[in-house]
Computed example of a mutant assay.
Amino acid sequence: MNNYKERKRIKCTRFSDVYSAICAKTNLQVAIKVVCTDDERPPHCSRDEVRLLKQFAQEKAPANITTLLDVFTEDLTDTAMVFPYYAFTLTSWLRRHAKRTKASHFNPYINVDSRPTTAEYISSLTLEEGVEIIKGVANGLDFLHGLGVIHRDIKPDNIMFQGYNPTPVIIDFGISYKIPNNFGKESDSNKICDIGTGIYKAPELLFHIADYGYGVDIWALGIVMTLVFSKDLKPVFEDEDIVDFKLMGMIFSTFGTPSLEIWPEAAKSTTFERLQLLPHPGKPMEQILPGVDNQIRKVFQKMMTYESKERISAKEIYTLLS
């Protein structure tokens, strides 16, 4: 740890802490992810994350995948991984390219039930810049999927930027899955379904369809698209911290209620079988993804199919948007 000075904690999660620091050898700013391995619970595994990151380096990962600079043990049991420092998440990067409007303020003397609200934004991102972001993430996913790796947690906080150019970098492989059995921990037909975050979870995860594949990453990227191309920097589902049952209803009301003819793999779910869903056509694509051209909407529609195996691949997303 003496190789890294001016250490400051910048993020704290259930299983890890992230610090910014200065590398004593290069004098460059880095990010250090420290994981207490004794506290880890499946699917979290820092040892497998290190193993994957080393494989990515051997396979010459594209610029859209983060780079492991160093790894060491701290306090006997903690695993510390060193990465390039990224100044922005996708959300903060988009806000840098937006106009900020006035936010309302909390005034307990006027309304005791009022709460402070977050600032509102109007995006100034160009369509071309948005396309480059989605292509960059798709390029990273194409690399991962080509190696048999499902990321399992694509979301704005795991898409980073070093500067103001729209070159996204995928980070955080702590719950990623390596085909065929995740280093002997999960069979391909019985993967852990408690993965992903909030609104970025694919429908098959909500119904515990455990033989899912790369499609969970594609669905999550589709939800990210609705954020990138929105005018107010809000994804199609605004409540990002949401319970699965509520998310299920929001997906059905937005993309339509699926039948077994539309979604054959749902037959594997006893929960789906018990539901008595009324037919609902969903919202028009123009409403879900406004302000983009028909080609982008066509790509998006192919990403957001219920049947996960029918979703287009990351490579196809990159090609169709090029």
Rank of each mutant, 00 (worst) to 15 (best):
I159K: 07
S230E: 03
S16P: 04
T270C: 06
S308K: 03
K185G: 00
S253Q: 12
K33R: 12
D75G: 02
Y86D: 02
N3M: 06
F229R: 10
N107F: 09
L221F: 06
E129I: 08
R274T: 05
G184K: 14
R115W: 04
L52K: 03
F143D: 02
K178E: 07
P116C: 12
G140N: 07
Y318F: 13
C193Q: 13
V34E: 11
V299W: 01
F173S: 03
D293G: 11
Y19W: 15
A220K: 07
T118G: 11
V30I: 12
K8F: 09
L144T: 06
H44F: 13
T89Q: 01
F83A: 08
S124K: 13
L227P: 05
P84Y: 05
I195W: 05
V131P: 00
I122P: 03
D38I: 10
I32K: 02
S104V: 05
L277Y: 06
E186T: 06
A63M: 08
P258S: 04
G148R: 14
E59V: 03
R100F: 00
S46F: 02
E128F: 08
T89W: 00
L321G: 04
K102M: 12
S46K: 05
E40P: 01
I133N: 03
N294P: 01
I209F: 03
E132C: 13
Y306Q: 01
K231S: 15
E273M: 15
K155M: 11
V299Y: 00
L53M: 12
D211G: 04
G148H: 14
E286F: 01
N2G: 10
Q301T: 15
I199C: 15
S123V: 03
K25F: 05
Q295P: 04
Y200S: 08
S46Y: 02
Y4P: 02
V224T: 15
K102P: 04
F300D: 02
K283V: 09
K191T: 06
F229E: 06
A210Y: 00
H105W: 05
Y177S: 01
T89C: 02
N2I: 13
K102G: 11
E6G: 12
Q295D: 15
I170W: 03
G213I: 01
F72T: 12
I110W: 01
G136P: 09
P84W: 04
P116A: 12
E40R: 04
M1G: 08
Y164T: 13
D239H: 08
K8N: 10
